[in-house]
Design a binder for these strands. Structure first.
Lengths: 340, 340
DNA sequence: AGACCCGGGACATAAAACGTCCATCACGGA
DNA sequence: TCCGTGATGGACGTTTTATGTCCCGGGTCT
């Protein structure tokens, strides 16, 4: 597989370039849904005319369709892109990155998509697609799946579709309400995922910043207790990873805590825990839900995050050593490898 | 290994041609030791100039060297050829088949898709795609296109899409109603193709098994006469090829005729005519529409059929000698070559 | 109704591919 | 030593293809 591409690179370097070009056109159209020639040209940094040439060609091949409203990918085209996935990875040199990270942190699988989530909205979408595919791969019938919030997780939810293997699964938020905008809260995302896959969901309506008393009262509540028990016995966790300070700001933690986070060198955040460079937990959010000790029993922990700026944070969480699968993008992967 | 090439072919249809061209240049140089441009050109059946273009390219890639005494292969080039050995076998299997059949039956173009229609539904779909592509390639504006029935033709219709070059063309059934299930009748297929491509269609509603009287009456009918005239002046015929006995059964021909078909060694069926092993017509369906003599004026005759079991039948029709283009699959192609 | 974006036709022009011819060089045999 | 042969590579006009540019008619959203 790899050899054949290496050979082709030697004998047909020009065709490999064309392949990349056509692939990226198709891929852009795929993630854009319906898109016009001019928009696409500028987003791919091509002149309109040469894009048009390629598009006409791809249309002849039946890989995309166009009507007055714009161009969209055809079913065969969509299938082709899927089949091409491994080829593209090798051709773009992503397989190397995946394997290096797997080895460096002892992970079961690493998936790297091309691009940089920080700079391209398309990469973010692709990250969502890849995250959804990873979840689909590891999920089994009757699983309880704990999810967190964040824009990346929202993107994954977007890309899930009904599938027999996920029908009847339970989606639960990993932890209580994490004061973000509603459509990126874990609760929202769990319910979207359940609806999209034909699964069921339970929510945790718990306010932020709990005091000790309120906390004790809450976990006595039978309704809440039931959900929390479900969360703690989940078989799969899929979560985003954030920069510690960014998350702290977003959650409006008080100034004291922020200072203490800084003093402790908090770098990354995931499912309510804050990690320093060495992967040690330096702080945790005061709310109910999944605890670190539950994670050890969890069979599959999937982390999804991308963007050059998050590379170091991802490396911190990986170093903590409870992840099994990582889905990230090229830019972040390169950063991660700088921190081994 | 094989899939990767198939995938690439979908995105870069001329990949194989170029790869083959460059490979054979290098290979020729390898076996020749040192050779000059003109010698090489004539032995590869290329014009000198185009060979020169490739040679200059290969030289830039460092795969061959040249000095005043001629060209010879470089060490990396030799290594590359060695590494390519397995690829070449797989990759050129089909191309070789295509060319052998073209030469054996004097066809303009042969397209072979991988697989066996008899055993794989994917191959059948692929055959449909390839058939549709072939039709798209040869069609011109304002053409009348005569089509036949059958599941393969239905598959082609499925794979047609609206295209400017086919807009406004006429689709007509090659011959009157061939008592098959409705969705595989020529009439149905002609109308689907017209709808899919944005063309127009005329149908021939003629019952099977016409008596001589009824026949005479029918062809007097101005409506029918108009369509029949259109059919007979078509520029393109695209048709399936069937096994004679299978078709006879499907059309419920009477026992007498069946016996006579068997006695005459009928092997294949196409557009209502039955052919024996040598390609002679041994029987024809009693219905209106395209006659063999009309076929001689037809500019493009495209036959589409696949499956190991049909190989012999396809060979019979090809031997009759009125086909220009054949679209088939690998299994059938191999069978065909056994009957040259 | 009007602004906007879409695909696709049209056409001039730039670029690449190709056919053709020739200058020059190395080599071997007379 | 000279000359014929076959080699590469330069040159150049021609043809074909790719590209830049402009515009039209038709949907769509506001």
């Amino acid at each position: 597989m790899r050899e054949i591409l290496d050979i082709q690179k030697k004998l047909l370097p020009d065709l490999m370039d064309i392949m990349k070009k056509r692939y990226s056109i198709l891929h852009h159209i795929l993630v854009s849904g319906v898109v016009g020639r001019r928009t696409l040209a500028s987003s791919l940094d091509m002149t309109e005319r040469v894009l048009r040439g390629e598009v006409e060609f791809l249309k002849e091949l039946g890989l995309l369709e166009s009507d007055a409203s714009g161009m969209k990918i055809s079913e065969t085209g969509r299938q082709l892109l899927e089949d091409m996935q491994p080829i593209v990875k090798i051709a773009f040199g992503l397989t190397d990155l995946e394997e290096s990270i797997e080895k460096a942190f002892g992970l079961k699988q690493v998936i790297v998509v091309p691009g940089d989530t920080d700079t391209s909205v398309f990469t973010k979408k692709e990250l969502g697609r890849a995250g959804a595919a990873a979840l689909r791969k590891y999920v089994a019938k009757g699983d309880i799946i704990a999810v967190t919030g964040g824009s990346t997780m929202a993107q994954i939810a977007n890309n899930l579709a009904i599938s027999s293997s996920m029908k009847g699964n339970w989606f639960v938020p990993a932890r209580g309400g994490l004061g973000e905008s509603v459509d990126m809260q874990a609760n929202t995302i769990a319910s979207i995922m359940a609806k999209k896959t034909g699964g069921k969901y339970r929510l945790l309506h718990v306010p932020d910043h709990l005091g000790e008393e309120a906390y004790q009262t809450l976990i006595q509540d039978p309704q809440i207790k039931e959900v929390v028990d479900a969360v703690r016995s989940c078989r799969i966790v899929i979560h985003g990873i954030g920069d510690a300070m960014v998350m702290a700001r977003r959650r409006k933690v008080d100034a004291d805590t922020t200072r203490s986070l800084q003093a402790d060198g908090a770098l990354a955040e995931a499912f309510g825990y804050y990690f320093d460079r060495q992967g040690n937990v330096v702080h945790k959010m005061p709310t109910v839900g999944l605890r670190l000790e539950d994670l050890q029993r969890t069979e599959v922990v999937i982390g999804v995050a991308g963007g050059k700026s998050k590379g170091e944070a991802i490396a911190s969480v990986l170093r903590h050593g409870q992840e099994h699968v990582l889905v990230t993008d090229e830019a972040a992967a390169i950063e991660i490898m700088k921190h081994v």
